[in-house]
Simulated assay, not measured.
Amino acid sequence: MSGNVLTNPVLKTVKVKGEDRQICELRVMCSEYKSDGNGGYVQDDTRTFPVQVTIWHEGTAKRVYEVVRVGASVNVIGATYVRPWVNEQSNQAEAGVCMDAEKVTLGLQRVEAVQYRAKAQPDAQRATESAPAAF
């Protein structure tokens, strides 16, 4: 899943098998993709939804908390599930998409390839630059 971060990550301490562990939670806005009919896919802007992401690996959780901010593009790999709850204000049953992340990487929204070439130097200048200095 990939998308843009909706909230700054929150670092929490929870008990896991009797030990304290730091986890990180954040929300990511995702979009579904649909077939374009030519073997490719296009983003379906009408079907966007927030995903509650929980990072259980302590090292990854701390790093995401330090680096990721609102608006960042991220790619998340992990288990996705639907979690139901009751809205306390309306007393209605609701559900949301959640994900237990195994891996989180920053997304590249725009990549530019630039090729650098060394300036050509005259042979005489190149010879003096590479010659050892005289003492």
Rank of each mutant, 00 (worst) to 15 (best):
M1F: 02
V5K: 10
L6R: 10
L6K: 08
L6V: 08
T7D: 10
N8L: 05
N8F: 04
P9S: 07
K12G: 01
T13P: 05
V14N: 06
K15G: 11
V16W: 14
K17E: 04
G18E: 15
D20A: 10
R21P: 03
R21I: 05
R21S: 02
Q22R: 15
Q22F: 10
I23P: 04
C24E: 03
R27H: 03
E32N: 09
Y33S: 09
Y33W: 15
S35V: 08
S35M: 10
G37E: 01
G39Y: 14
G39A: 11
G39E: 11
G40M: 14
Y41H: 11
D44P: 04
T46E: 05
T46F: 03
T46Q: 06
R47Y: 00
R47C: 02
R47I: 00
T48K: 11
V51S: 08
V53F: 03
T54S: 06
T54Q: 07
T54N: 06
E58R: 09
G59K: 14
T60H: 13
A61S: 05
A61H: 01
K62L: 14
K62A: 12
R63S: 12
R63M: 11
V64I: 15
Y65S: 07
E66W: 14
E66P: 12
E66I: 13
V67Y: 09
V68D: 01
R69K: 05
R69E: 00
R69C: 02
G71V: 01
G71L: 01
A72M: 15
N75C: 03
V76A: 01
G78V: 02
G78Y: 07
V82A: 04
V82W: 03
V82M: 08
P84V: 02
P84D: 00
N87A: 13
E88W: 12
S90L: 14
N91C: 08
Q92L: 11
A93Y: 13
A95V: 08
A95E: 06
G96N: 09
V97K: 02
V97I: 08
C98P: 04
C98R: 11
D100K: 11
A101N: 13
E102N: 12
K103T: 13
V104Y: 00
T105Q: 15
T105V: 15
G107L: 05
G107H: 05
R110P: 01
V111C: 05
V111E: 03
E112S: 10
E112W: 13
E112H: 09
A113Q: 06
V114F: 11
V114I: 09
Q115E: 03
Q115W: 02
Q115S: 06
Q115D: 01
Y116A: 09
R117Q: 08
A118Y: 13
A118P: 05
K119V: 05
A120R: 10
D123R: 12
Q125R: 15
Q125H: 13
R126P: 02
R126L: 15
A127F: 11
T128F: 10
T128C: 08
T128R: 15
T128L: 12
E129Q: 04
A131T: 04
P132E: 03
A133P: 10
A133H: 14
A133L: 13
A134W: 12
F135D: 00
